[in-house]
Amino acid sequence: MTILECRGLTKKFGKVTALDAIDLNLEAGRIVGLLGPNGSGKTTLIKLANGLISPDAGQVLIDGHEPGPETKAVTAYLPDKDFLPDYMNVEQLLGFYGDFFKDFDSERAMDMIRSLKLDPEQKLKAMSKGTREKIQLILTMARRAKVYLLDEPIAGVDPAARDYILRTIIGNYSQDALVLISTHLIADVENMLDEVIFLKTGHIELHENAEDLRERTGKDVDHLFREVYAC
């Protein structure tokens, strides 16, 4: 069942075409890697799907709807920057998410947070970057969403934190949901992907099942990526 669809999706910033008439169908129950170097259009696509920016042409549909209140209620979004009020502590953040999102499972969030052995009184701004990223991910994954849009969830954290973040995604997404992960760190995510999308300067260069791709080419996704994007 298609849960995220792009039809002729186009976005320009001045003279630069960030996305050029993208057609894309993504099905529920998959983990999909949105892969491409900086500037290939990954974040633009995710922001369009969230309704944070509007397309110049074409449309993006989530569960059949254009971005709006209905789609935001079923889409869990992890931006690529810090986005939470940093004066809040963990307890306040849980309340904040619970107020905003009906599908937020605070018990599950609490379980995950307990495994981090954090002081619940500690404020976000007093945490290390790695811990902050973990908290943001936990809040996102504790929603029982239909679509998870994760923009660079592992950039800028150490390998151990990366491992934790990837396991948290695998262990917690709803099995009938779509997880779209944008990243340029291919080797770290490749084993957890059902499908890969290579974005190149606003075009879809390739969209294929990851295992089929390995079988067809005899290469892993990381090596193929290096070939496609060789300068």
Binding site: G29, R30, I31, D163, L166, R167, I170, G171, Q175, N191, M192, L193, D194, A210, E211
Partner: peptide, 17 residues
């Protein structure tokens, strides 16, 4: 499937297969 997938660090559909 989910527990094995988390342990292996792979997609649950891959583990299922």
């Amino acid at each position: 499937v989910r527990d094995l997938a988390v342990e292996a660090g792979v997609n649950p559909n891959t583990m299922q297969r």
